[in-house]
């Protein structure tokens, strides 16, 4: 038994973050175990009208190249995806992405609730959801949907967050399995990776 009480049945990891999450995400991606088997799907708040630069900045130190998926692109194991600017990112039952330009949610497009919620619907209890630093409540509802469908939930330790509204909103409305600092999340990925070897 490992310390996070995990097993190797998980099929995907989804990460949400906003203000103050960039450094944390970079750290997680830069220390990701080589050949980490699960797809990592990220929805991070970003400038709506800047299409370029973000994915490149994230990829710079990442172990795996980060890509912004095309509409209807199939989710591949071991890949790292980022919701593109000015689109909502959903996951469909056939394990592929779908983009949309619907209304903003929580003043955001991409909205974390949409990515987390659709992942929860598709992956059910085979999903790990992680919510990082951020200045609004986007993502809280998505984390609740992940928990309600039996997934595993992690939020960044609020005291470590640049802005703790986001993890605190999730903690307020649903059960969170682990409250971790970024370094512990890095370790979490290493522990998880071992279970798939």
């Amino acid at each position: 038994m490992n310390k996070f009480n995990l097993n190797n049945s998980y099929k995907a990891v989804v990460i949400g973050g906003s203000a103050g999450s960039f450094q944390g995400v970079v750290k997680i991606l830069s220390q990701l175990p080589k050949g980490f088997p699960l797809p990592i799907i990220m929805c991070l708040h970003r400038l709506k009208h800047v299409r370029h630069g973000f994915v490149e900045a994230l990829s710079l130190k990442s172990v795996v190249q980060v890509t912004e998926p095309y509409d209807k692109e199939t989710i591949k194991r071991g890949s790292v995806y980022l919701a593109p600017a000015n689109y909502h990112l959903s996951v469909e039952l056939g394990h592929y992405f779908a983009l949309s330009t619907e209304e903003m949610i929580n003043n955001s497009r991409p909205a974390i609730d949409i990515t987390l919620g659709t992942c929860a619907y598709v992956f059910k209890d085979k999903l790990i959801g992680i919510l990082l630093s951020g200045a609004n409540k986007d993502g809280a509802l998505g984390m609740k949907q992940i928990k309600d469908r039996g997934g595993f939930t992690i939020v960044q330790e609020p005291s470590e967050c640049m802005i703790d509204t986001m993890p605190k909103s999730a903690l307020a409305i649903t059960q969170i399995d682990q409250v971790l600092k970024i370094d512990q999340i890095v370790n979490f990925f290493k522990e998880l990776d071992k279970l798939y070897r």
Binding site: K72, S100, E102, Y121
Partner: peptide, 9 residues
């Protein structure tokens, strides 16, 4: 139609 957005609508 794509199911995820149709459902939201």
């Amino acid at each position: 139609y794509a199911m995820s957005s149709f459902k939201r609508r």
